[in-house]
Amino acid sequence: MKILIVEDEKALLSTVGNFLTKQSYICELAENFQTADQKVSIYEYDIILLDITLPDGNGLQLLKTIQKYNSKAGVIIISAKNSLDDKINGLDLGADDYITKPFELAELNSRIKALIRRRQFNGSSLVAFNEIEINTDSKEVTVKGNKIVLTKKEYDLLLFFIVNRNRVLTKEAIAEHLWQDNIDLADNFDFVYTHINAVRKKIKQAGGNDYIKTQYAMGYKFTDS
């Protein structure tokens, strides 16, 4: 799976690059419009992460080149502007998703995974972790072959955990993933706890293990180790 990251901020570029390389993607980096434009017109990518505010050009312009030479690639726009106009323009010009700075790596990861699942149909709609299986097409969850019924938020939560397995997920990251910017929850994360407990209980009842480990007061980690 080949990913091109277009981002003018070096620190951000290398952090995202390192993270995605660890997630076993092949990453290429472009620091400016020029490089990105060249790369896009020569090589093929599966996913392109695109910062639309570049010093030497507008990222939205790059979308046109991508449409021309790399139409199979899934594009996620990264923007510092949380503006609806950019979002609509971007999505109209063929971007698949839109993420606003500052974002969580876990969030980026789950957006990339979701995009890959949407782009490749043969069997890839199945996300599994040991005895837990999620079919992202039918949104069905089975534990040891037993179907369990989760609410929409519980389903989102479990998928977020499994996609970001072995990673510490802070309460903030979980809350943001479940509610986006819709709600200013301040420091009230008791509902995250409520959802996690519900998911734990349902998995246990179906005979599964509890993989959700608490990390001090900061968050949770989905792991079997």
């Binding site: 952090t15 500052p102 968050g219």
Partner: peptide
């Protein structure tokens, strides 16, 4: 405000990685 978002992203991503 816009310009702040990028450095904030960098700090937050680094901290997130350290937390791992």
């Amino acid at each position: 405000s816009h310009e702040l978002q990028t450095p904030l992203s960098v700090i937050s991503l680094h901290l997130e990685e350290i937390l791992q």
